[in-house]
Amino acid sequence: MIRTNNLKKVYRTEEVETTALNEVSVEIKAGEFVSIMGPSGCGKSTLLNILGLIDNPSGGEYHFLDKEVSKFSERQRSQLRKNNIGFIFQSFNLIDELTVFENVELPLIYTKVGSGERRKRVEEVLEKMNMMHRRNHFPQQLSGGQQQRVAVARAIVNNPKLILADEPTGNLDSANGDDVMKNLVHLNNEGATIIMVTHSQYCAEFGNRIIRLLDGQVVTESMVAKQML
């Protein structure tokens, strides 16, 4: 599903040039749950953004669904993105002015799903996340755990092939964190490919493979021995 070849990303400001990714080559197959780990500033989020088609690499190749997309324009990336990828963020990134229902509905509007169908699917996924009773609330009226459940609902409402999660438990207490992780595992079991960036070894082990980055380079890749759950 995903294959990168010597992916590079360089940030330039007036005085400094920072290499965030240095010749990263990874391959992720459909149905995998991959965790990316590493210390702050090692390039985890940059890699995730590029994999999620919301940023362009400075060099190298990126094959997504068998297409070389590293030179795609924003419009082309947007097309691929909205039909295939769901995002979950550490800070939830819900839109404060929209209700729970409207937040979850947004990806469906952008993929031009009809309103009846939208309603059905939003309700389905809210039900699944156990958030139906909060459908008319605004994000600021919810706890962190609830907000992240809404964010997960929004990420999966379009049935994406790929779910990208950037520190999904970073702003949550451990109970809520566990809750989110179980949801991700569940989605993975239903067939979604998941790539998650995390600081936490504990969370990383919910996946089946861990990629470790340091200073923009892959240092180790390891399989996770499955025991619990």
Binding site: G52, I54, S78, Q79, R81, K82, N83, F87, N93, L94, I95, D96, E97, L106, P107, Y110, T111, R154
Partner: peptide, 10 residues
Amino acid sequence: KEIGIRKILG
């Protein structure tokens, strides 16, 4: 930020 989110969502 809102614009960014909306863009990511398509």
